[in-house]
Design a protein around this nucleic acid. Structure first.
Lengths: 128, 128
DNA sequence: CCGAATCCCATGTGATACTG
DNA sequence: CAGTATCACATGGGATTCGG
């Protein structure tokens, strides 16, 4: 059964605020969008970034983002299976929003203190 | 029982994104924040802006916003009761975020087409 | 006028097992 | 590797009722 997204919006001008919020809400969408901003990723690559997400949830969130036209899902007819996710043009328009969200978080929450960088290698370097 | 906010965040750098999202998520927080950006409002004034919100929900969202240090609740010892809500300093730091959210919504959703303005009078002018 | 308490259903999300 | 199906539980949110 196709889930009904976008329940009801009965605000005033602030409406646009909630409308946007509903699209990027969902437990993992923000992070997914953020990571995809840095480039195309495979399903399992995404999982690595979201250590505790379940397969079910990751799939679900990705599907919703796809439905909303933010991400593109590319399936390669190979074996083993390979599926890549990337942002669409529309998805990239969210960059300012994601950035604003991240900046605020960096400045005002404890998560701004983590010094991880998104350029870390996918696999540990062999030679240490 | 005090509800547990901020479940668990186990992202990567994108963490800050979700952290912010969790704070402004909730069915009505975005709109509330947006309206409060324009100035102090009484409980019922807020209700007028959010036509379908229930008392229970408005109270709840306001309480969470208060907990998170975004809004200030001022109770006047009068009768009939009068309670005013306004943004705290911290609350105002969210302005860029709310703005980004609104701008995107204005540009990319159907809610960008409403022409209402937030400067409409609280009460009808007596003398016309 | 503002809000708390209670009841109740829909949904979100996690765990687990199975499939191509 | 990527994804689906089913079960189970916690939470979100609406309706209604009661109180200062």
């Amino acid at each position: 059964m196709p889930r009904i997204r976008h329940k009801r919006l009965d605000c005033s001008p602030g409406c646009a605020v909630e409308a946007t919020l509903e699209l990027i809400d969902g437990k993992w969408k923000g992070v997914i969008l953020f990571h995809l901003l840095h480039g195309t990723m495979r399903f399992n690559a995404l999982r690595k970034r979201l250590p505790t997400v379940t397969q079910r949830m990751l799939t679900a969130q990705l599907r919703e983002l796809e439905q909303d036209g933010f991400v593109l899902r590319t399936v390669y007819a190979e074996v083993p299976p390979k599926v890549e996710y990337s942002l669409t043009e529309r998805g990239r328009t969210l960059e300012p929003v994601i950035t604003a969200l991240k900046q605020w978080g960096d400045t005002h929450t404890r998560f701004g203190t983590d010094t991880q960088r998104e350029t870390e290698p996918e696999a540990a370097p062999a030679g240490g």
